[in-house]
Amino acid sequence: MPSNADPMSLAGVHARLQALFPLGDLAPRRAGLAFVDLPATCAPPALSHLRDREGFGHLVLLTAVDWLEEELFQLTYLVCNREARLDLGLRVRIPREPARMESIHDIWPTAATYQRELREMFGIDFPGSPRLDEAFILEDWRDIPPYRRDFDTLRFARENFAERPGRETWDPASHMRQRLYPEANPGMDPSVPGDRS
């Protein structure tokens, strides 16, 4: 294996990988964990390379983050090298509409499960991934995918599920302010019924 930097560090891995793929800068989080950005088309070959040549054989997780403000989904592929005790997170940004990403179930069979979940919870398409369109966690979901930021779970729950009258919700910040500084908020009695503290 050709090595130019310290072969057993994330910087070394990053340097070797950068020679092959247009990688972003390494964002170290702590010793042994770093994140790196790369374009969507490079992710599967880079993961394949990491698995076969760099010993990152363990796919820890594959998940998505919804950056609604930037109209982007961030896919995080976290891979781990158990022998060298290194974790590398590959961050891929893809557009929200249409959300589509190449499947990696041929690299790790277990990724098919993650991709089924992402398909259901974020509406990200992974063409070719097995059993992608079967219901995984939800059943007969008719709204927008629930993990998207623009899905309001509280409103959905209020509209769909009958509520028992009498349940009160307190905003903790204003409740504590009212309890601690009652004189600053005249007209609010801290000992009203329903105060459960």
Partner: peptide
């Protein structure tokens, strides 16, 4: 088949 215990924690924690 899973999903019988889904409560959407990851969503609930976001709010």
């Amino acid at each position: 088949h899973v999903g019988f215990l889904h409560r959407g924690f990851e969503k609930l924690m976001e709010r």
